[in-house]
Structures are given as C-alpha cells and as structure tokens.
Design a protein around this nucleic acid. Sequence first.
DNA 1: GTCACCTGCAATAGATTGATTGCATGACGA
DNA 2: TCGTCATGCAATCAATCTATTGCAGGTGAC
Lengths: 110, 110
Amino acid sequence: MTSSAVVQVCSALGDENRWQILRMLGERPRSASALAAELPISRQAIAQHVEVLVRAGLVERERHGREVRYVPVGAALSAAVGQLQAAAAGWDRRLEALRRRAEGSAEVSG
Amino acid sequence: MTSSAVVQVCSALGDENRWQILRMLGERPRSASALAAELPISRQAIAQHVEVLVRAGLVERERHGREVRYVPVGAALSAAVGQLQAAAAGWDRRLEALRRRAEGSAEVSG
DNA sequence: GTCACCTGCAATAGATTGATTGCATGACGA
DNA sequence: TCGTCATGCAATCAATCTATTGCAGGTGAC
C-alpha cells in the first residue's frame, strides 16, 4: 500500500466513472464485460477502474464459473466514512475555537 | 466545475500531502510560505495543493496584510461526509438484500 | 474435442497531475 | 522612497492515470 486506507478510498472515489461503476454494482453485481456493455468505455478501462476499487477494498471479486462478478463492500465505505467523520468532528472543534479567537482579536502582537 | 461536489472533495482528499496540509491548517491557519517552511516541497507545489482544497471548498483564504492565511472549512468536509454516509447507507441496505439472496440461492435462472 | 466467450497480461498513446524554477507585482516597515 | 518579504503568474519537466488495442490462456457449452 502506498498510502493510508482513507486516502486510498478517497482517491478511488475521486472519479465519476468509478462512482458510476459502484452505483451499477450496487444495483446488481456484474462482470466487467457486463459493465462494458452499458458504459461508453472499453472493458479494459473498466477492469482498471474496478481494480482500483478492489485495491481500495470497496468491491470484491466473486467467481461464477468463467465469469468474475464484482460486488461492492458496504463496510469499507462505512469505515472510510467513519474516519472522515472523526476527522471532520476534530476539525470542527478546533475550528470553532479558532473562530472564537479570531473574532475576539484579529491580530494580536505580530 | 468538472465534477460533482462529492467527487471533487474525494479527489482533493485523495492525496497525502493535502491531508498533511489540511491537518496543519487545522492545528493553526497558516500561509503557503509558512507551510513551505515545514514541508519538504516547494511553496508553489503547496500553493497548487491548497488551490485544489479551495476549489473543493475545504479551505478558505484570509488576507492579513500582505499575507494570505488558509483556514479549513469544517462544514464542507461534514457535508461531503454526510453524502458519503447516505451512499454507504443505501448500499448497505441493497447489499444486505443481495447477500440474503446470494446465500439462499447461488444462481437462480438468469 | 472443438468452438465460443470471458478473463488476464502487455504495450502504447494521450491527458492530467505534481513539482520545480524564474520572474513580476504588491504591501509593509524603516 | 527604498529594501524586503510574500504572493501570483507562466513555462516546463517528470510521473501518474486513463483508455485503447492486441493477443494469450481458461472455462463452459455443445
């Protein structure tokens, strides 16, 4: 892993095609070929996007005969959301303190 | 804007340098020059990262004389987290249904 | 066994991103 | 006014990412 889990999940979620794929898999697990039949990009491009999602832990492979179906993993997203939430909460607290200080005195001694 | 707000926030959060910057700004708002003095990358690189964060709505500019201080915006992160949470919840529900179906019968008729 | 289909790997081209250097502009302080 | 310091813009380079094509390997159907 080149980066922490949250960063990797965010990076994976930082692309609209991957959101689209994730949404489609959420409706119904599908193979890369099946996804390619409904999206304007090639199967290989989709395979690469899915690989990113797999590495981020957001989807899992499921073999069905010669077919590989991809299934989203809700828990991974929930976990990432939890950490983001914690970060947001921490910042909120600190930022509130900062804001109070800023309103009280714009510039104390340089 | 080239993409939706959530995607943009995720994309901005998909880089460790930007997390680092965000954390440092959370501790204490600073200028790009001040950040550059504490990070191993150039001021310009930091300025570009901060620009990404500003475009994502995660930080705001604050002029103080000839200095430009950057302040994180907790609300933006909270909002994004909220949407991610909604997505996660939706998927969780659907995925639970899928899982139940999968466990009951591996492959029903196509 | 053979055919068809789906997956997987490799190589490649184009676009985007991350980081750097150099210079110009603008504001504060002496 | 002049010097200093911080910001801002432009150009450039390297690395990464996205998407494509082509082909080899495997699995299931007949």
